[in-house]
Amino acid sequence: MHIAGCRLWTVYATYGGGHSVVLLWAWLADNFKPYFYDLICALVALIGVCIIFYAPQTIH
């Protein structure tokens, strides 16, 4: 999907990666203790962000 010169899936990936950053911030700044599965989900989200960001950028 191509809207006004931006790739929508890249914006979506950034949004998902932002949630992982919020989890890290809560852990470091607010002394929140995440569950093991919180960390696994954040890792999966960041891997997805990397896949989307570094995928070949071809627009048909």
Rank of each mutant, 00 (worst) to 15 (best):
C41R: 11
H60E: 13
W27H: 10
I47Y: 11
N31R: 12
L39G: 06
Y54Q: 02
I3K: 14
A55I: 05
I59Y: 07
I40M: 10
Y35K: 07
V44I: 15
W9S: 13
H60S: 06
D38C: 09
A45Q: 06
L39E: 05
K33V: 13
V22Q: 09
C41G: 01
G5C: 04
A13L: 02
G5P: 07
I52F: 05
I51P: 01
G48K: 03
H60L: 01
K33A: 02
Y12T: 11
C41D: 09
G48N: 15
I47M: 10
Q57A: 03
I52G: 00
V22F: 13
Y35G: 01
I52A: 08
Y12G: 00
D38F: 10
W25H: 12
Y37M: 07
I3S: 03
N31C: 08
A26G: 06
V11K: 03
I47P: 00
C6Q: 08
R7M: 07
A29D: 15
L46I: 11
T14P: 00
Q57W: 02
F32V: 07
Q57N: 03
S20H: 05
A45F: 08
Y54M: 02
V22S: 12
L39H: 01
L8N: 09
D30P: 00
I3D: 09
G16C: 13
F53P: 00
W9K: 05
A45R: 09
V49M: 08
R7L: 11
G18L: 00
H2D: 07
C50I: 13
T58C: 00
I40R: 01
W25Y: 14
P56V: 02
I51G: 05
Y37D: 14
L46A: 01
V21F: 06
G16I: 13
D38S: 05
G5F: 06
G17A: 15
L8S: 13
H19A: 08
I52T: 14
V11R: 07
V22A: 12
F53H: 07
